[in-house]
Write a protein that binds this DNA or RNA. Structure first.
Length: 816
DNA sequence: GAATGTCGTT
DNA sequence: AATGCACGACATTC
């Protein structure tokens, strides 16, 4: 077991490190991803798509990455004789309406088969769970992989190197690097989420529950299911008491023998990554059987402990959620790092390497059941961890392992349980194993300095498989601190992405209880106290400091402070404003591009310092320079009005000096005009002889030069219909032409095919049939019966079934 | 003295 | 070119 685990993560680390060396970003992230099971990779892609597809529109089967979407049901391909086959291919997707091909029987043979790249399709057919549509709520939980074994990702470990550390640390990270980090972060999130979802599902397993239930006495079960005749308070008390009983009991029975999930950290350099190894006692990947086994032996990581506790409670009829605090790799490079590999300060000595090897072999040979497989090493990986040793309570009823393991882990749990207090309609946390706390959400948030546990995403899974983000219940500064660690603040679209991910786990309907909980969570967020230090005001969703305003942000004139902070104790006090009093200011040009116009005589709300002189001149004439370079004036939204082009009068459309019409937003269509968003619009209008103006819809910036993008045209409203009609006509013409062209090409292909056949037939006609058994079908008989016989002959034969006359062909294949 | 926050440097 | 960012050094609080 341990052997497998080590192999998996070991190869993983090596891979990443190797790819890192190659320096190319694409390879790097490629390698990164290649270590992730396809299902997860796809989830990432899937959840990332911005397209707002409604459930009904979604494909039943998920697309595979390599597969193009438009390879709809098979249309018979024309014989792949090399013609201008590229033309044909190009049109493939658009020609769906061209029914003609549906009617053409496909040749069962080709003379010269063009290489079809079929290889790419067969590769990933292995995937076990391809039918799982990640984006469809409610999730089809049965199709989530039923074991961790497909998962090579070592959650507790490091997956990549912190570039910032190795590169020039003075420079801010590049955009690409940031994206890369975010991608890793998101991938981690998904993997962890699914891991937890799977464990949650196992908690419902009847075999697991049956094995656990004997732990409970009838009295406990009674406590856990208080009679409804009790008062609200009484019920809650009974439940709580029952939980405590069960908790104490469980704590003595369950033995923590393995290390659970830890926070992922960045490696400082590749060496650290390469030399990284999982601790001996890290939890091994499990499948359902292993989990059942753990339910019997009551041993495992404290994560498994919490999961079994959840199963136990569910078996007693308690509404219990499995809660997991996901520990993805941070997208900021700050924070603690992996640090040096265990023991060896620099490189491993030969002896050490040898020792490691033997240990590995031992593990491999000796069955795990015979006690702890690996003797604890002196230089334990976590010898440096500062948490006091956690002695696992030795079970009295079981033979304790020869050497009680000391597992130092965070003093805060990764997994715990939430119980529904029915009386108060409230979910309450319970963690018997780590903090031994009940009904105390505040007790579960680790401090920011915890190297092994970082609370950023707390997900609660219910027994029906649905999940909810309940982070706000547990963190004390969601807005000020936690948010900054979450994907929402890393990326503009992060919010959307995360919602979409969770939507896969949503119940579809919002129950009353959901609503109550949502209210509770938002209230917690609103109640969050105002930060007391300057740093926490940065990017705060409610408050803002002047010092943190972006260059194009500005406070509304009447903005009033809602408090003050000082930096440290001696800094000058700064006013705290509300974020909603912050406005974005833009230049005249920017506003124009948004279809707005700065009112005349408005005083710019701010001047953006533009270009400053390249260098501090040796001469003292800086003053002049500065005066000349007080930059672009910018204005706020309410200093502008909607921009209006002059109206269309008598069919005359206004135009700019390039004979176009600026049309950046819909509101810029002039009064009395209509926008025809079609490439053919201008031509159609020209054909009709009506006035029109091509629409300038934006600019394409390539390097420094911006080129105008023209799309469609504006015509007078009364001409719109006519123009559209003409466009339809034009399109039909084009379609017609293309259709004819295609038909011609296909016919050409068929002709060539048949001609070749005929040639071949002629050639082989003289050859004795037994010399070339392969061709006898076609060749053997005399001319009389040729046709019929060929049609009857085996279809697997290359030429079978396709000996026809020219006339037949022409007649049969012509459509229309 | 650990934990947390600010400041100056590049 | 300079602004923003990250990081180490230093300061303050409990």
């Amino acid at each position: 077991m341990a052997g497998r685990k080590r192999t998996a993560s070991g190869s993983h680390a090596t891979n990443v490190a190797a790819s890192r060396t190659s320096r190319s970003r694409s390879t790097r992230s490629g390698a990164m991803r290649s270590n992730v099971p396809d299902i997860y990779r796809e989830m990432l892609i899937e959840a990332d798509t911005q397209s707002s597809v409604t459930p009904s529109e979604r494909p039943l089967k998920r697309r595979r990455p390599g597969q193009h979407n438009h390879q709809s049901p098979k249309r018979p391909d024309p014989p792949q004789v090399i013609l201008k086959s590229d033309d044909v291919d190009d049109e493939d997707d658009e020609a769906d309406e061209d029914v003609q091909f549906e009617d053409v029987p496909p040749p069962t043979a080709t003379i010269q088969t063009v290489e079809r790249d079929s290889d790419e399709e067969e590769e990933d057919d292995e995937m076990q769970f391809e039918d799982f549509d990640f984006s469809l709520p409610p999730p089809d939980l049965d199709s989530i992989p039923d074991g961790d074994k497909d998962l090579e990702l070592d959650f507790s470990a490091r997956t990549t190197v912190n570039i910032q550390k190795t590169a020039d640390r003075r420079k801010p990270i590049t955009r690409a690097e940031k994206d890369h980090r975010i991608e890793i972060h998101r991938m981690h999130l998904l993997c962890l989420l699914y891991h937890a979802a799977r464990r949650n599902r196992w908690c419902n397993d009847s075999a697991v529950q049956e094995r656990l239930r004997p732990l409970l006495t009838n009295k406990m079960i009674k406590y856990l299911n208080p009679s409804t005749s009790l008062t609200q308070f009484g019920q809650a008390q009974s439940l709580k008491e029952g939980l405590q009983h069960v908790g104490t009991l469980y704590k003595t029975r369950f033995q923590i023998t393995e290390r659970g999930i830890r926070r992922a950290l960045w490696a400082d350099n590749e060496e650290h990554l390469q030399n990284y190894q999982l601790p001996d006692d890290a939890e091994s990947p499990m499948d359902k059987e292993d989990f059942r086994e753990a339910a019997k032996s009551l041993r495992g990581s404290r994560d498994v402990g919490a999961q079994l506790y959840c199963a136990l409670l569910r078996s007693a009829g308690v509404e219990a959620r499995l809660v997991c605090s996901l520990q993805p790799l941070a997208f900021t490079s700050g924070g603690p790092a992996l640090g040096k590999p265990p023991k060896a300060k620099g490189k491993l000595s030969i002896e050490e390497q040898y020792a490691r090897m033997t240990k590995y072999n031992n593990t491999f040979e000796s069955p795990v059941a015979s006690g702890p497989p690996i003797a604890k090493r002196l230089g334990h990986p976590n010898a440096m961890a500062y948490y006091p040793p956690r002695i696992t309570p030795a079970s009295s009823s079981r033979k304790p392992p020869p050497v009680p393991k000391k597992i130092r882990e965070s003093a805060y749990p990764i997994y715990w349980v939430e119980i529904l207090d029915e009386g108060h309609q409230k979910w309450q946390p319970a963690d018997p194993l780590v903090t031994d706390s009940f009904w105390k959400p505040q007790k579960l948030e680790p401090p920011a300095s915890d190297r092994e546990n970082c609370m950023a995403y707390v997900i609660a899974f219910e027994s029906d498989g649905t999940a909810k983000d309940v982070t706000r219940r547990y963190v004390k500064a969601y807005n000020a601190k936690t948010r900054k660690m979450r994907i929402e603040s890393a990326q503009a679209t992060g919010d959307k992405w995360w919602r979409k991910v969770l939507q896969a786990f949503s119940r579809g309907i919002t129950t009353d209880l959901d609503q109550i909980e949502n209210n509770e969570l938002t209230e917690l967020e609103l109640r969050e106290p105002m930060p007391r230090n300057v740093a926490d005001f940065k990017d705060h969703p409610i408050y803002a400091l002047e010092r943190h305003l972006r260059r194009n942000e500005v406070l509304v004139p009447g903005a009033s402070a809602s408090g003050t902070v000082g930096a440290g104790s001696k800094g000058p006090l700064e006013k705290i404003y509300r974020r909603r009093d912050v406005r974005i200011a833009r230049s005249k040009e920017k506003w124009y591009r948004m279809g707005r116009e700065v009112l005349p005589n408005e005083i710019p709300v701010k001047f953006l310092p533009k270009r400053v002189k390249p260098k501090a001149d040796l001469f003292g004439d800086e003053e002049d320079d500065d005066c000349g370079t007080v930059g672009t004036p910018i204005y706020t939204h309410d200093q502008t009005i909607l921009f209006k082009h002059p109206p269309v009068i008598n069919g005359r459309v206004p135009k700019n000096r390039f004979r176009n019409l600026d049309l950046y937003v819909p509101s810029m269509v002039p009064e009395g005009g209509a926008y025809v968003p079609d490439e053919l619009a201008a031509r159609a209008a020209f054909i009709l002889g009506v006035d029109y103006a091509p629409a300038l819809t934006g600019f394409l910036f390539k390097g420094k030069h911006g080129t105008a993008v023209l799309h469609g045209a504006v015509v007078a409203a009364e001409n719109e219909e006519a123009v559209c009609a003409v466009i339809d006509g034009l399109k039909e013409q084009v379609a017609e032409f293309e259709k004819a062209q295609r038909t011609r090409e296909v016919l050409k292909a068929w002709r060539l095919f048949l001609m070749s056949l005929r040639v071949r037939q002629r050639i082989w006609a003289d050859v004795d049939s037994d010399e070339e058994g392969n061709h006898e079908d076609v060749v053997e008989s005399g001319d009389g019966d040729d046709h019929a016989k060929a049609l009857r002959s085996d279809a697997s034969d290359e030429a079978g079934g396709f000996i026809v006359d020219d006339e037949d062909m022409a007649g049969g294949f012509m459509v229309d």
